[in-house]
């Protein structure tokens, strides 16, 4: 049970990092990004390959994962410069699928659908699995803390103000003297870097990555986490990630405790409970658990 709890907290950390990254792109700047799992995957593969094939030290691999994902984000921002709303959603979704298909088919590089195994982890083998989980718990939540600190500052800085203005009305932001495209590129780069870092850390925690781990469902989870937590709010992103993990995992035990139903019915009950909770949350608290607030006071 302890091991399970720690593992869930580690995953909550990954989710929180991803929700923070998405919050820069979607929450602050208003660019729908249904391809976030693609950036997560790019970071994971980059770090896994560099550390296992070229024997780079892990911290360098993580930095490379974030950097390459950021680069992909910058290119993405230029490609989708003129797209908004639904169109942006379709193109970003397509991007993530392209990443997944490349990972499945470029066998020489990624080992295809068999995935990459034996990715090194910090002190893995030298410590017990439970100690390893605890070490990683520290690493991932340190990353969350650093990302949260920096992104909160950015969010409440003049930079964040411009991103919010672009989200609300691009023409006004442009007339206010802000080069809109350049701000979008920087928002995408910043958010994708955090997503890539999350992916890199995930690869080294899991020791194994395969294309099927980067399916669109994960994107949907993170979008739900941010929506539940509060779109545009950095604290909301973290609270939303914890909330979502608790909801998904907690209902497992709740459903198990219901007497007189078959296992199949229990599984259905669980999914129903998750859906109902999210619907109720969005109905009665559409602004999220921690609504976005700016700090500028006269």
């Amino acid at each position: 049970m302890d091991a399970y709890l720690v593992a869930m907290l580690v995953f909550a950390g990954f989710y929180a990092l991803m929700a923070l990254g998405l919050n820069v792109i979607w929450g602050l700047t208003g660019m729908v990004n249904l391809g976030l799992v693609g950036f997560f995957g790019v970071g994971a593969y980059a770090s896994a390959l560099l550390t296992s094939k070229l024997a780079w030290p892990m911290p360098l691999g993580w930095a490379a994962g974030a950097t390459i994902a950021a680069l992909a984000g910058g290119i993405m921002a230029l490609i989708v410069a003129r797209l908004r709303g639904d169109y942006l959603a379709i193109v970003t979704l397509g991007f993530a699928e392209v990443i997944r298909l490349v990972a499945s088919n470029e066998v020489w590089l990624t080992n295809g659908t068999d995935g990459i195994s034996g990715i090194p982890g910090p002190w893995r083998g030298a410590v017990t699995p439970q100690q390893f989980n605890l070490i990683f718990l520290g690493i991932v939540w340190t990353a969350v803390a650093i990302a949260f600190y920096l992104l909160s500052r950015a969010s409440h800085s003049p930079f964040g103000r411009v991103l919010r203005a672009i989200r609300e009305d691009e023409d006004v932001a442009a007339v206010a003297g802000k080069p809109v495209l350049w701000f979008k590129v920087r928002a995408f780069v910043t958010g994708a870097a955090v997503l890539g870092m999350a992916g890199a850390l995930y690869a080294h925690y899991n020791a194994f990555i395969a294309p099927e781990g980067f399916a669109p469902l994960l994107t949907i989870y993170i979008v739900l986490a941010l929506t539940a937590g509060g779109v545009g709010s950095m604290r909301g992103a973290i609270i939303g990630a914890i909330f979502l993990i608790t909801l998904i995992e907690g209902t497992r035990f709740l459903a198990a405790a219901v007497p007189g139903v078959t296992p199949v019915q229990k599984a259905a009950l669980r999914e129903g409970a998750i859906a109902l909770t999210l619907i109720l949350l969005l109905r009665f608290r559409p602004q999220g658990l921690i609504p976005e607030r700016t700090r500028t006071k006269a």
Binding site: R153, P158, F159, G177
Partner: peptide
């Protein structure tokens, strides 16, 4: 404030560092 010009805090790095 949005319409203020020449705000160095509109660069990412400056925004991080404050």
């Amino acid at each position: 404030l949005l319409y203020g010009q020449a705000q160095p805090g509109e660069s990412v790095l400056t925004a991080f560092l404050g």
